[in-house]
Design a protein around this nucleic acid. Structure first.
Length: 719
DNA sequence: GCGATCAGGT
DNA sequence: CACACCTGATCGC
């Protein structure tokens, strides 16, 4: 829980995530996300009174956060005082003291935080230096390196202070399986169960909080089963979520809640009251998402633990692990760091003691020496992680930091095509070459890294190769694109979506995340995908072996699943879904991978809208999976979605789809196409810009305009 | 009656 | 395990 008081030392006129006490006098308010512990005082009468007699006091947040906030009538009084900021769009704000007229300007940039829908970090730049407030965040390793706006040119910005989410800043939380791994584990468990019969249902025992949405949307996409929830009006303007949830209890996946839902469950009853269907009793299992962590040397990374006859715990975390935090901070390398949270049992001093070595004062003397040979591979000298840095840098810090996949250092994705000069900040040749790789590339390298730099893992070697090979398989590409296309053409564009073109959207972020997350794996922790059949997704906490119903299936299937998982990644590679019609959608999704703002997007006229979209997604920490469209399509054909109807058909098709593109990550596919740091990738979905188009872009660039501003609405891109 | 705080629960 | 949140009791305004 956040213990941040609301104010930055450097900019005391703004209040962030706290709205009581001294914050009542702030000149501007910022809300990083819509969790209650970050909204203290937000609806207090004192603040409400102040708003009533002020024209100038605003609350700044992401569009999604605004949407979620205003869904509750308790916060309606904020309506005229909320200013939404697009993610990754630096904005100048004047902080005016209404009594004295005193004024101070500050530039703020929202960066995706990956914590829950709409969640962002705030980057403030002003006369007292550059300060980053992370709010709550879950960012995989290397994600900071991919945030263009944390950089100027090829360097990381000079950041004075970071106010950091230190929820898991304790070595015991060293590793938390990636979102991708967790999602896959849950997906297979749910799949195994729900395919037994239509009376086999799953209850996801989720706490009342935003942050599970990507779980719901992905399960729904993958399995063609909507998720039953108590309320969905907060998502009324987010069709990508709305589509996958329902208030119709007649479905096989439930995330509904009841004050005494455990009692309900014990009575073989879902929280919504369902206990049978057509007179046939339901077979219910519960899955409780909860954070699981693993020590540095612990290689066990089961993301599903069986806790009883029909109950499971599944790994799920809204917050970055210890190693992710350290990766993040060491990349930023600020002068100061201030913990927003005290992990249980730790004091502030202790946390600072852990973090200080990653800050500048400690590093000055140990700055790695640059080795010229590494030039082509490096973008940010300031970022030194171990592994491949070792060939390029000497650093004494290596030993104290967790391994970071190679790719992430290469992952600054900004330039991907010959038009890279369109990119605003990274303009030198060096960075250009470096950034020819896509973000997800790191996956390959990570695997490679893992098998290389540490003793234990060998399985992963194949990954990289597979990616390469598959990514260049044109047949696969066209195949799946056909499938994908049909999907794209029918499903998504609901009335709502059309009418809410400018409203918060969800599509892309998770795609981004998936990649990012899988990249986060450390040498000791191969992702489930990487691990192939060698690792079971399940563990049996009771020591009860996989028995009876799920078990036999599980034991056989989980292995299979794992393999599928790994092959899935591979085979996904060959599923490069590109047709001209889909191109926009595709690049949209790719774009959203965290490799956003690239030459690719520019070439393709990815617009600021798309970017904003992307950013919003990122801001939400949510993702949508590739299969989304497929399911979408199927479901829409199925129209009114009688979940009672036999899902077989859907499942069959889904399986087909999944077989070809099991791993959702479009970007991965895309990434896989750029196979070398030294080559300009031939992006399959890229087209050469027409001369007039180029001319236009150059002109805009020369004029200093934002070339990402052209309008192609994401909605259109889905049609 | 309302909000803030705490304890206890999921 | 933690998290985010809810409920209920108590206190003060």
């Amino acid at each position: 829980m956040s213990r941040f008081g609301g104010r930055l030392r450097e900019y005391p006129w703004v209040s962030i995530d706290r709205f009581d006490r001294h914050n009542l006098r702030a000149r501007a308010y910022f809300l990083s996300h819509c969790h209650k512990d970050h909204m203290k005082g937000l609806r207090a009468p004192a603040l409400k009174r102040r708003l009533e007699c002020s024209l100038k006091v605003n609350l700044y947040c992401s569009p999604v956060t605004k949407e979620l906030l205003l869904t509750s009538s308790k916060y309606k009084f904020w309506e005229n005082h909320i200013v939404t900021l697009e993610v990754e769009t630096p904005t100048q704000i004047s902080l005016v003291d209404e009594t004295s007229g005193e004024k101070e300007d500050i530039e703020v940039t929202l960066l995706p935080a990956g914590h829950c829908p709409g969640s962002v970090m705030f980057l403030f730049q002003g006369e007292n230096g550059t300060v980053l407030y992370t709010g709550d965040f879950r960012l995989a390793k290397g994600e900071a390196a991919r945030m263009e706006l944390l950089h100027s040119g090829t360097r990381v910005k000079d950041i004075q202070s970071v106010y950091l989410d230190t929820t898991f800043c304790d070595p015991k939380f060293y590793h938390i399986p990636s979102r991708e791994e967790c999602l896959n584990g849950i997906l297979e468990l749910v799949r195994n169960w729900t395919t037994l019969s239509r009376y086999h249902v799953v209850w996801l025992n989720c706490k009342a909080a935003y942050g599970y949405e990507y779980l719901f949307t992905n399960l729904s996409e993958e399995l063609g089963i909507k998720v039953h929830v108590n309320k969905l009006d907060m998502f009324k303007n987010m069709p990508e979520i709305l589509y996958h949830i329902t208030t119709d209890q007649n479905t096989q996946i439930h995330a509904c809640r009841h004050p005494r839902d455990d009692d309900y469950f014990r009575g073989n009853r879902l929280p919504c009251g369902m206990t049978s269907q057509n007179g046939t009793p339901l077979h219910i299992i519960t899955i409780k998402p909860s954070t699981m962590w693993f020590g540095e040397r612990n290689k066990k990374t089961n993301v599903i633990v069986r806790t009883g006859e029909s109950s499971y715990r599944a790994c799920f975390s809204f917050h970055s692990s210890y190693s992710e935090i350290k990766d993040f901070l060491s990349y930023i390398c600020p002068v100061n760091v201030y913990p927003n949270v005290l992990p249980l049992g730790l004091t502030e001093d202790k946390v600072v003691e852990i973090l200080k070595p990653l800050c500048r004062s400690y590093r000055r003397n140990t700055e790695p020496k640059y080795k010229p040979l590494g030039t082509l591979k490096r973008v940010h000298k300031t970022h030194f992680s171990d592994t491949d840095e070792d060939d390029l840098f000497d650093t004494e810090l290596t030993s104290v930091r967790p391994k970071i996949p190679k790719q992430q250092t290469k992952s600054r994705p900004f330039k991907t095509l010959p038009c890279g000069n369109a990119e605003r900040t990274n303009e030198n040749t060096e960075s250009y070459k470096v950034t020819t790789t896509y973000t997800s590339h790191k996956i390959d390298f990570m695997d490679c890294e893992e098998s290389n730099d540490d003793d234990d893992e060998e399985e992963e070697e194949s990954e990289q190769n597979t990616v390469e090979v598959l990514s260049h398989d044109p047949d696969a590409t066209s195949n799946s694109s056909g499938k994908k296309h049909s999907v794209l053409s029918s499903g998504v564009a609901s009335d709502q979506e059309e009418s809410n073109a400018h409203l918060p959207r969800w599509d892309a972020f998770f795609k981004c995340n998936r990649i990012d997350e899988s990249s986060e794996n450390e040498d000791n922790f191969p992702s489930s995908a990487e691990a192939g059949g060698s690792q079971s997704l399940f563990s049996d906490s009771d020591g009860v072996s996989d028995s009876t119903h799920i078990s036999s299936q599980n034991s056989s299937q989980s292995t299979h699943i794992s393999e599928q998982g790994s092959q899935g990644w591979d085979s996904q590679m060959d599923t490069v879904l590109i047709t001209s019609q889909e191109r926009n959608a595709f690049e949209f999704s790719c774009f959203n991978k965290g490799g956003s703002r690239t030459g690719v997007s520019i070439l393709h006229e990815t617009t600021k809208d798309n970017q904003a979209e992307n950013s919003r997604w990122k801001a939400m920490g949510q993702n949508q999976s590739y299969a989304y469209d497929a399911v979408h399509d199927l479901k829409s054909k199925d129209t009114e979605e009688d979940t009672e109807t036999d899902n077989t058909q859907i499942q069959d098709v889904l399986l087909e789809v999944n077989d070809n593109s099991r791993t959702p990550d479009l970007e991965l596919k895309k990434d896989s196409q750029s196979s070398s740091d030294f080559e300009i990738p031939l992006t399959p979905d890229a087209e050469l810009p027409q001369p007039d188009k180029l001319h236009f872009l150059y002109k805009k660039l020369a004029a200093g305009e934002n070339i990402l501003n052209e309008k192609i609405s994401p909605e259109n891109s889905f049609k």
